[in-house]
Amino acid sequence: MISLHITSRLSAETLWIDQLKEWCVAHEVIQNESLQVPELHEGGKKMVGTREIEDFLKEYRTFMDDWYDCRCDKWQEV
């Protein structure tokens, strides 16, 4: 499960929340205005700051796309 800790000061935070909802990813959003920068926790990993979160979400989306990609023709002998 992804735990997104937001500051509610950045417009990117709304985008991240919308992406997680759109992707149907198990997540929780924790609003913490005392944070200086947003954080994302997933498993034992912790991403801090906009750049790390966006990089993680981009990689996560690539993983999801690969997971749902049709594999039928990838295993056929030529």
Rank of each mutant, 00 (worst) to 15 (best):
S3V: 05
T50R: 07
K74F: 06
L20S: 01
K45G: 01
H41V: 11
E52G: 04
Q36K: 08
E22Y: 00
K74L: 05
M1F: 15
S8E: 15
G49C: 04
L57H: 02
C70G: 09
E77W: 06
F63K: 02
H41I: 12
A26G: 11
Y60G: 00
R71M: 09
M1Y: 14
D65K: 06
S3H: 10
E22S: 01
F56D: 00
I6F: 02
M47E: 00
H5F: 14
R51G: 05
W16V: 00
S11H: 14
E28A: 12
S8F: 09
W67Y: 14
C72A: 10
K46D: 00
L20Q: 05
N32L: 06
R9S: 12
E42S: 15
H41Q: 06
Y68I: 01
T7W: 07
M64V: 08
I6L: 07
Q36L: 08
E28S: 09
W16N: 01
G49L: 08
D73P: 00
G43N: 08
N32H: 10
V48S: 07
R51Q: 09
N32S: 14
R71T: 10
K58Q: 15
L10N: 05
W75R: 04
K46G: 01
C24Q: 05
E52Q: 13
D66K: 13
L15T: 12
S34T: 12
E42I: 15
H27T: 01
T14F: 10
G49Y: 07
K46C: 06
D69G: 02
H5C: 10
E42Q: 13
L4T: 04
L4E: 00
K45Y: 08
K74W: 09
I2T: 05
S8R: 12
I30G: 02
T50K: 08
I30C: 07
M64E: 05
W67V: 07
Y60T: 00
P38D: 03
I53P: 00
E13P: 13
D55C: 02
C72W: 02
T7Y: 07
Y68R: 04
R51I: 14
V29Q: 07
G49N: 08
D66V: 09
N32C: 07
Q19C: 04
R71E: 06
V78P: 12
M1Q: 12
A12R: 11
E77L: 14
C72S: 03
E33F: 13
R9Q: 15
Q36V: 13
T14Y: 03
V25I: 04
Y68T: 03
I30R: 08
R51D: 11
S11K: 13
V48E: 01
E39L: 11
S11V: 14
E77R: 09
P38A: 06
Y68D: 01
W75S: 04
C72P: 00
H41E: 11
R9M: 15
H27A: 06
A12L: 09
L15N: 10
L15D: 04
N32W: 02
L4W: 03
R9L: 15
G49P: 10
W23L: 11
